[in-house]
């Protein structure tokens, strides 16, 4: 594959394509490689989504002018085509059907979020019920087990992070 024959811009592994909190209005389409959508806080970085070839991101900036809600980083070498905001809006004005795929992808993201929300809600409910049951039947005081539970949650988070990283790197040893 000749470097000259490629479109867009190449980002190296870990390089930031879009930065959380920064205001910009371009949208992006991944030409080759992968990118991860991450959100940072004082506890570190949480991976929100993994994007692949053909995926669109940054589309929310089409509809609002507020700073980016998350950071997108290259996961390995990633080639990305930027879509200029003003030109796109003018093309959509002439051909509104051009927005169909963007809307379809946003709609898919809402579905995914709903599924994850329901799953998170169910997990919390399940955990609540279990803890109440434990409290009732065995008279276990949760306060006493707080340190152990916290340790288990940390271990789980670390394992999840490792698995995600392996997935991103396409590690075949992933079980």
């Amino acid at each position: 594959m000749s470097e000259e024959s490629l479109l867009g811009r190449l980002y190296k592994d870990g390089e930031i394509i879009v930065e959380e909190g920064i205001q910009s209005r371009s949208m992006y389409v991944i030409q080759s490689g992968k990118a991860k959508v991450v959100k940072s806080d004082e506890d570190g970085e949480t991976i929100l989504a993994l994007l692949g070839e053909g995926d669109i991101f940054g589309e929310m900036s089409l509809f609002d002018a507020i700073p980016r809600s998350a950071t997108v980083k290259a996961a390995g070498n990633t080639r990305v085509l930027a879509i200029e905001h003003e030109g796109l809006l003018k093309r959509i004005k002439m051909d509104p059907t051009l927005a169909f795929r963007i809307i379809r992808q946003m709609s898919q993201r809402i579905r995914d979020l709903n599924t994850r929300l329901i799953f998170a809600q169910e997990t919390i409910n399940h955990a609540n019920n279990k803890l109440l049951q434990l409290n009732k039947t065995e008279n276990v005081c949760i306060k006493d087990r707080e340190t152990k539970l916290s340790h288990i949650v940390t271990q789980l988070q670390e394992k999840l992070h490792k698995l995600t990283e392996q997935f991103i790197q396409g590690d075949e040893t992933l079980q």
Binding site: S2, L6, L7, V29, L81, R91, R101
Partner: peptide, 22 residues
């Protein structure tokens, strides 16, 4: 430039075998 972007939005990414030069 506008067609490259439009096609990418439509889900048609031009592969390196087609693009002779960027």
């Amino acid at each position: 430039e506008s067609l490259v972007q439009t096609l990418a939005i439509e889900g048609v990414n031009l592969p390196s075998s087609v693009v002779r030069w960027g």
